[in-house]
């Protein structure tokens, strides 16, 4: 356990060295937030949609801008690159469980991202635009929800990267994943805006657990418990599947020598 805590701390530190990139990233983030907000406010400004008025919409936009870097919404390639180059053998023979080690590192990364990626856009949104803060009771629930969202996202990305053990080039899968996430995680429009017939479908994907769920909890849209339950379910499923896939992959690497 100590080892994993150190890994999480190292993950935190590693990302905190890219300070200049962070400032640039913040500018990008704010610019995209403004663009997205303009379109959505143009829509809800006429009349609230599915319970989203202007304040809820701006809160949704800035919270989404902040969370998307905490809960990485696109595929990452680190493990995939190491698999392709063969370096993964080193990782597999270390005395750790690779998935847990990477998860620990990702938790550290997410912790750092909460400070520098989540806080600034939320503060920006809260200062300059109408903003809806939740009650005190919601805060701890929101924190748990974000943690679960990170777990689901990590699990999905791990599976995505693990495909490299079988496909030499997994860029196609990566691109597909990013396209689907973008549409179904609730980043582009709130999932509640989808037509009624589509709602059960979009809410039953793991993508909803990655972004829309914590946002809805923050906005106090209905009871948080079903959302948390769904997030917990997906976190368990993707991490468990990841564990099984890794075991298969290890056997493959060991048998074929990489």
């Amino acid at each position: 356990m100590r080892a994993y805590v150190s890994l999480a701390l190292a993950g935190f530190r590693r990302y905190s060295t890219y300070r200049q990139a962070m400032v640039a990233g913040m500018a990008t983030n704010v610019a995209f937030g403004l663009l997205r907000m303009a379109v959505l406010v143009a829509a809800v400004g006429q009349a609230p949609i599915a319970g989203y008025d202007v304040a809820a919409t701006t809160t949704y936009v800035w919270l989404g801008q902040g969370l998307m870097a905490v809960v990485v919404l696109w595929g990452d390639k680190q493990l995939a690159d190491r698999v392709r180059s063969g370096d993964v053998v080193v990782d597999l023979y270390r005395p750790w469980h690779l998935q847990s080690a990477l998860f620990a590192e990702d938790v550290g990364r997410a912790g750092y991202a909460v400070l520098v990626r989540l806080a600034p856009p939320v503060a920006f949104g809260a200062v300059f635009f109408p903003f809806r803060w939740p009650g005190f009771g919601t805060a701890p629930v929101f924190v748990i929800s974000v943690a679960l969202a990170v777990a689901v996202s990590f699990g999905m990305r791990f599976l995505l990267n693990a495909t490299t053990f079988w496909l030499l080039d997994n860029r196609g899968v990566q691109a597909l994943y990013t396209a689907l996430t973008w549409l179904f995680c609730g980043l582009a429009v709130p999932l509640a805006f989808f037509p009624d017939w589509a709602l059960p479908i979009v809410w039953s994907t793991p993508f909803a657990a990655m972004l829309q769920a914590p946002i809805d909890i923050f906005l106090e849209r209905g009871s948080p418990w079903p959302l948390l339950a769904a997030q917990g379910f997906w976190a368990l499923v993707v991490l468990a599947v990841g564990h099984l896939v890794l075991a298969r992959a290890v056997r493959k690497v060991v048998v074929q020598g990489g």
Binding site: G172, V173, L176, T178, A179
Partner: peptide, 20 residues
């Protein structure tokens, strides 16, 4: 030279476009 991946990437790009 990675045909499957290339086709998947094309499909993903089309989906991206249609998602918008």
């Amino acid at each position: 030279s990675y045909r499957t991946s290339f086709l998947l990437q094309c499909v993903a790009q089309a989906i991206n476009q249609l998602a918008e």
